[in-house]
Amino acid sequence: MDLLRRDNEKGFSWKGFFLQWEWMLILIFLLVTAINSYLSPYYLNYDNLRDATMTFLDKAFIVLPMVLIIILADIDISVASTVALSAVVMADLYAMGVPMEVAILICLAVGALCGFINGWLIVRFKELSAVIVTLATMIIYRGIAYMMLEDQAVGQFPEWFKFLGWGYVFGIPFILIAFVVCAIAFALLLHKTTFGRRIYAIGNNPTASRFSGVQVDRIKIIVFTLAGLMAAVTALFLTSRMGSTRPNVATGYELDVIAMVVLGGISTAGGKGRMIGAVIAVFLIGYLRYGLGLINIPAQALLIIIGLLLIGAVMVPKLKIRGSGWRKAKPADAPVKRAL
């Protein structure tokens, strides 16, 4: 008996390979591109595409840790508020005369602290779900931002700070390079390290993971802290692009981010999904928005489309492929597992 034998009975099937969610995403992506470029001659213009990419990539930094959080079967809806708080703290400090470099570091620290508090509350009070904890901190973080700045906007950052959001390296937007680097780092972390393996273990079966010596609490805190840190990174890019900041920046980002993650094939039940899917989904939604903007679809309709996309994305896996047709999953057979 060769226990190391891969499952050869089914063999490699092209059908199985292409039925992977990521390929579906790429297909949709191509479809969106085709339709968009058909509808608007300006769509496939390099400058336009580049500018669009620079516009939508700021929130993409949060998508990366959100993938980890959703694989853990948790959720964090406070990320947008963390963006606002860390941006406001940075701007406020700078306005008070703190050097920009220090303000940036503090901005990152504030973001990480916000994430750490989320993680700490979630592991310390296990009877509370991540939904309710981050719902509360979502209000608190933004509330603190309002306390600090009230309804003012703060801007006038040094010229070099603009580079983050507007700069190019060898003709490639800096923000894109930064995102790609971060995405690769997160993908490696998730798929190639013991840390990532443990995240999947917790998402699949938290009890068995704990019994197997996985430091569940520590990993959760680290992941939530990472989410806070990346929210602060988003705050940097966003502030750089806007040139100023207000307490109500990044409103609704949590929805976009969660929509991208879920669309990327990461199951909200935890334990399943890959980083690459979410990254494709970032570009898919980004270009969809850009394309719709070009053909003058109002922003409100975009709101609806994103909402529907989110729901569509979580609904699709619930419809199972059976034979040739799509069969609806019977809720009666499915185990009833619903905690928020």
């Binding site: 190639k192 390290t193 013991t194 840390f195 990532g196 393996r197 443990r198 273990a201 699949n204 079966n205 068995a208 993971s209 019994f211 197997s212 010596g213 996985v214 334990g271």
Partner: peptide
Amino acid sequence: GLVLPWSISSNITLPAIGKYAKKGWL
């Protein structure tokens, strides 16, 4: 005891995954 959807291999190595890795890399 088990992560049911996982392979036998991944289940066995879960408690000592650090031991079978190089500085955290699987």
